[in-house]
């Protein structure tokens, strides 16, 4: 006898699917490359909806705010964006990685 209790786990893709099925606009942000030390590995996902709700993460909280903003812009414009964050970035004083690493994040609206 096998009993499975399959409650939804921490899965940004599941949230993305649910939001879009509910008629909301939503985007997926994914870490596509990292250099040096970075808090989350390549492939890490964060789902963002048009109201700014998000699940998952692409860093240790350092750049999530900027990625959410970019994701909402991406949703409004209906196009993808490739973002880069790190100490070499001119935004470093504003939004950067305290760990000194550099990461690239791809943001894509998911169409219904």
């Amino acid at each position: 006898m096998t009993t499975t209790f399959d409650e939804r786990r921490d899965d940004p893709l599941a949230d993305l699917e649910r939001w879009i099925a509910q008629g909301q606009k939503a985007a997926l942000a994914t870490v596509v490359a990292t250099w040096g030390s970075s808090p989350r590995p390549v492939g890490s996902h964060m789902a963002v909806n048009e109201t700014g709700d998000f699940t998952g993460s692409v860093s240790g909280g350092c750049i999530e705010g900027a990625v959410i903003k970019a994701a909402r812009e991406s949703l409004a414009a209906g196009r993808t964006a490739l973002l880069e964050f790190g100490v070499s970035n001119e935004m470093a004083w504003e939004v950067g990685l305290a760990c000194g690493g550099r990461i690239q994040v791809f943001v894509e609206p998911v169409s219904s």
Partner: peptide, 14 residues
């Protein structure tokens, strides 16, 4: 990515 592809991905993962 569109919703259809996302749904299929989630099915395959399941």
């Amino acid at each position: 990515m569109n919703l259809q592809l996302l749904r299929t991905l989630q099915q395959w993962r399941a």
